[in-house]
Simulated scan of single mutants.
Amino acid sequence: MNIFVANLNFKLQEDELLDLFENFGEVTSAKIIIDRETGRSKGFGFVEMDNDDEANSAIADLNGQEVHGREMVVKQAEERPRRERRF
């Protein structure tokens, strides 16, 4: 399951995000989205977990939890519609 994580403290590192979710089971990947121009965090990211039960448990327990002074928003990621490429 792909999990969307928002309202992250801009100083939170990917390994810290990984550690939060590993308490619930095996994490396939944890990625914080970085702004291309500034190289800084955009304050959100994605975590992938293969086991849906573990992922749902992580979502239920971590949504609204305060990490580094900010309450995280944690929910199942929604599929984005594909965008047309413009040249």
Rank of each mutant, 00 (worst) to 15 (best):
E71R: 13
K31W: 04
G39N: 14
P81V: 11
I3V: 09
N51T: 13
S29R: 06
E22M: 13
L17M: 06
D35F: 09
A60H: 13
R82S: 12
N51G: 09
R40M: 12
N7W: 04
E16L: 08
A77E: 10
M1T: 14
Q76K: 15
L18N: 10
G25Q: 02
A60F: 11
N51W: 04
G45N: 06
V74H: 03
A58W: 00
S41N: 02
R36M: 10
E22G: 07
G25W: 00
L20P: 00
A55W: 02
N63C: 05
F46Y: 12
D53L: 09
F24A: 00
I33E: 01
A30M: 02
F44S: 07
T38K: 02
A6C: 12
T38S: 12
G43S: 05
I34G: 07
A58Q: 02
G39Y: 09
Q76G: 11
R82W: 08
N9S: 09
R70P: 00
F87M: 11
H68I: 12
V67F: 02
R85Y: 14
F46L: 04
K31I: 10
A60Q: 14
K31G: 01
G69H: 08
E14C: 09
L20G: 01
R40Y: 08
D61S: 13
F4H: 08
E79N: 14
E79V: 12
G69R: 08
A55G: 07
